[in-house]
């Protein structure tokens, strides 16, 4: 079954800007929704500006429905250039909000994107401590 998507969701699905791998990423957040089978990967590269760490590069690889691809692209839009502290605060509500509207049944895609980014950041912080 397919859903009525907003123009913005369709736009991000048909013409995503952030898909693909990053060469030598600082970390990768890899998530899987066991129920619907969507697989989402977020690649990040962290830079430093005025002693603050920020998301310098971000990209995604997603096997999923239209909403999964659109939310992946949107979280990259939202996170790019943000400090790590700010990026951690991005929630599924922000993603859905920026996309205009997301069908209720597809909110879990935005949650998956949120989780993927959080996992990437956590993995980055874990690596840094070592």
């Amino acid at each position: 079954m397919t859903f009525k998507y907003s123009k913005k969701v369709i736009e991000h699905f048909l013409h995503p800007k952030h898909w693909g791998k990053i060469k030598n990423p600082d970390s990768i957040g890899d998530t899987l929704n066991l129920r619907c089978g969507d697989i989402m990967k977020i690649y990040i590269k962290v830079g430093k500006k005025k002693k603050k760490e920020y998301i310098e590069k971000i990209s995604f690889e997603t096997l999923g429905c239209g909403a999964a691809i659109a939310t992946s692209d949107m979280i990259c839009d939202l996170a790019k250039g943000k400090t790590i502290k700010e990026a951690k605060k991005i929630s599924f509500k922000d993603i859905a909000g920026e996309l205009g509207s997301l069908p209720v049944q597809k909110i879990h895609c935005a949650r998956l994107a949120e989780t993927a980014l959080k996992m990437a950041i956590k993995e980055y912080e874990r690596k840094k401590k070592k």
Partner: peptide, 14 residues
């Protein structure tokens, strides 16, 4: 393989 069903349907719809 590697292309999800709904995303193919939406792209075809386009």
């Amino acid at each position: 393989r590697g292309a999800e069903g709904e995303s193919m349907v939406i792209a075809l719809d386009g």
